[in-house]
């Protein structure tokens, strides 16, 4: 990693390369979010993540009160291949976190 060549950011995917072996945040279509360690990716943003936590947010309307009920479900998955066509956003870990 240390060499100048490797750390140079020339194109967007370089930003992701610098996050290899780091925990990243991935937002997917249909209100799915992943946090996990990035182990592999390609040009399509296909990825393999490790120690993954997935959060799915769904909004239901209560039949009687018509109130919106926001439900989140969490689960953990040891290793996950994520197909890139569902990916909306990839973010390296927040430095403040």
């Amino acid at each position: 990693m240390g060499s100048e060549e490797e750390s140079a950011v020339k194109e967007p995917l370089d930003l992701i390369r610098l996050s290899l072996d780091e925990r990243i945040y991935v937002k997917l279509r249909h209100d799915r979010e992943l946090r996990g360690k990035l182990h592999a990716y390609d040009q399509h943003l296909n990825m393999i993540l490790g120690d993954v936590e997935e959060i799915v947010t769904s909004v239901e309307i209560d039949d009687e009160t018509y109130e919106e009920i926001v439900r989140t479900t969490r689960r953990t998955i040891p290793f996950l291949f994520v197909r890139g066509d569902g990916v909306i956003l990839v973010s390296p870990p927040l430095r403040t976190a």
Binding site: E6, L13, D14, R17, L20, D21, L28, H39, A40, Y41, D42, I48, G50, I77, P78, F79, L80, F81, V82, R83, G86
Partner: peptide, 25 residues
């Protein structure tokens, strides 16, 4: 396909990092 859950014994992290770096480079 949205995800494929992988068997932990089928994931060689170092190998994946190397392949990804090679491809990215």
């Amino acid at each position: 396909v949205r995800y494929v859950q992988l068997p932990p014994e089928g994931v060689d992290v170092e190998l994946l990092h190397d392949a990804t770096r090679r491809e990215a480079r």
